[in-house]
Design a protein around this nucleic acid. Structure first.
Lengths: 225, 225
DNA sequence: TGTACATCAGTGAACGCGCGTTCACTGATGTAC
DNA sequence: TGTACATCAGTGAACGCGCGTTCACTGATGTAC
C-alpha cells in the first residue's frame, strides 16, 4: 500500500503550512480514514464474531448473511470465500456457542464434591443461556437436527452434554445418564422459560432468577414432594 | 341454507331415474366440482385450522400468511378481513395451542392423588409437545414475549401454567409455586430436547421416550442424588 | 533484487424468489320499504 | 313478494423489500526464476 495515495495524508504533510492553524482538534480526532485493507487477513473469524454481534443486536431471526457481512464491514458476497452457505456459517456459530458453554463449564470439573459440581453446572448453564439468549436459541435450533451434516457442531454438542453426564455419574454411578437428563432438562427448560419471557407478568411470587437454577436443582436432588 | 340449491341433491333425487345405471361408481367418487361459494362462511376458523395444518407440513418457519391462505383455499389477501396482521393470526394460533394443552390437561384435575396428578401432567405436557412440535415452538416463540399485545394469548398461557401450579400446591401447600416451576421447567426442557433432536445420536442408553417424562418427574419428586 | 504470473480474496451488479401489505374491484348477502 | 341499496367478504394485481446465491471483475499476495 502506498501512503501517498491517501488524500488525507497528502493534506497533512504538504498542504499544511498554507492552511490557517486554528482548528486542529477535529483533525486529530479522526486522523486518517480506517486502513481498510483490501485483503482482510482473518475474515472468517471476523465474520463469526460479527455473527455473535448480530445475534445480540438483531436477535436470532435477524441473523442473515447480508447482515453479518455488513457487521464485519465487507460486501455481502465476501462470506462465500469462507463458508459454503448461510447454514454452514450458522452451524459454525452454533458450534462456537457449544464451545463457549464447554469453556464456561470447565472450572466445574475441578470440583470434588459431585453434588456441588452438578449445582454449579446448573447455574453456569442457565447463566450462559441468559447471557446469550439468541445464540442459545440458534444452538438448539433447526440446525441441531441436521448435525450429521455439520460434524464439528455434533462433536461440540455431544461434548457439552458429556460434561453433564460425567458429573451426574460421579454423583450416582448406577443411574448417571438418567440423572444427567433430569438436570439437563430442568436447566434447559428453565433457560427457555426465562429467555422467552414465559415467566414475565405471571403474577406469582418467584425467587430471584439468578438463584432459580441452583434452587430448583437442589430441590430435584433432594426430592420435591 | 336451502337444500334444493345443492346440485348433488338434485341429481340424487330427480335425475336418477332417467340415467343409465351402469357407470355409477366414478360419478359417486367425485360427484360435483367443489361448491366453492364466494363467501366462505367461517373463514376465520378455517384459517386457524389451515395454520395448524401448515405447521404440521411446513414447520414453524414455513408458516406464512400466503401459505395459510393457500391451505385454506382462498386468495392471500382474504385473511386481512379476519386478522389485522400475520402476527395477529399467529398469536391466535398460539393461543389455540395453549387451549389445546389446557383441554389435554383437564382430565388430570379429577385425580385426587396429587402426586399421580403431577406425574400425569408431565406426561400430557411432553406428549402434547411431541404431537405438535411446531405449534409448541410457536407457543413459546417471540410472540409470547409480546403477550401484552395479545391478551387472549396471555390469558391462555397463564391458565395453563395455573393448572400446574394448582397440582403442585396440592402436593406441597407451602412451596407449591417452586415445585410447579421445577416440574414445568423439567417437562419444558425435555420437550425441547426431544423435538429439537438434541438427544438423537447421542450414543448413550436412554429409556423409551414415552416413559421419560413420568420417570424423570418421579425422580425429581423422590430426590435424584 | 526484480519481474512474470498463478492464485487468493475481495467487490458490486444482478438473478429470481417469497414475503407482508395495500388497493380498487366485485360478487354475495341482508335489510328497509 | 319484489326492489333498491348499504355492507360484507372475497379477488387479483401491484407495491417495495430483503433475502441467498451467482457471476464477471479486480486488487493484493505469494512464488518461481
Amino acid at each position: 500500500m502506498k501512503a501517498a495515495k491517501s488524500p488525507a495524508t497528502v493534506e497533512k504533510t504538504a498542504a499544511q503550512p498554507a492552511k490557517k492553524p486554528a482548528p486542529k482538534t477535529p483533525r486529530k480526532r479522526a486522523p486518517v480514514p480506517p486502513p481498510k485493507p483490501y485483503h482482510h487477513g482473518n475474515l472468517r473469524d471476523s465474520l463469526l464474531d460479527a455473527a455473535d454481534a448480530v445475534l445480540l443486536t438483531h436477535g436470532a431471526s435477524g441473523i442473515t448473511l447480508r447482515e453479518v457481512a455488513k457487521a464485519a464491514g465487507v460486501s455481502h458476497a465476501a462470506p462465500y470465500h469462507h463458508f459454503a452457505s448461510l447454514d454452514d456459517l450458522l452451524a459454525t456459530v452454533a458450534e462456537r456457542g457449544f464451545q463457549r458453554l464447554i469453556a464456561a463449564l470447565e472450572p466445574t470439573t475441578r470440583l470434588t464434591n459431585s453434588r456441588e459440581r452438578l449445582l454449579q453446572i446448573s447455574e453456569v448453564y442457565v447463566n450462559c443461556a441468559r447471557a446469550h439468549p439468541s445464540q442459545f436459541r440458534l444452538m438448539f435450533g433447526p440446525l441441531l437436527s441436521r448435525k450429521r451434516e455439520f460434524p464439528a457442531l455434533q462433536i461440540a454438542a455431544e461434548r457439552s452434554f458429556g460434561m453433564v453426564v460425567a458429573a451426574a455419574t460421579a454423583l450416582d454411578p448406577r443411574r448417571g445418564t438418567e440423572l444427567a437428563l433430569l438436570g439437563w432438562s430442568l436447566c434447559h427448560g428453565l433457560s427457555h422459560l426465562l429467555i422467552d419471557g414465559a415467566l414475565e407478568g405471571m403474577s406469582m411470587p418467584l425467587p430471584p432468577t439468578a438463584l432459580l437454577a441452583r434452587q430448583l436443582t437442589e430441590r430435584a436432588l433432594d426430592g420435591g414432594g
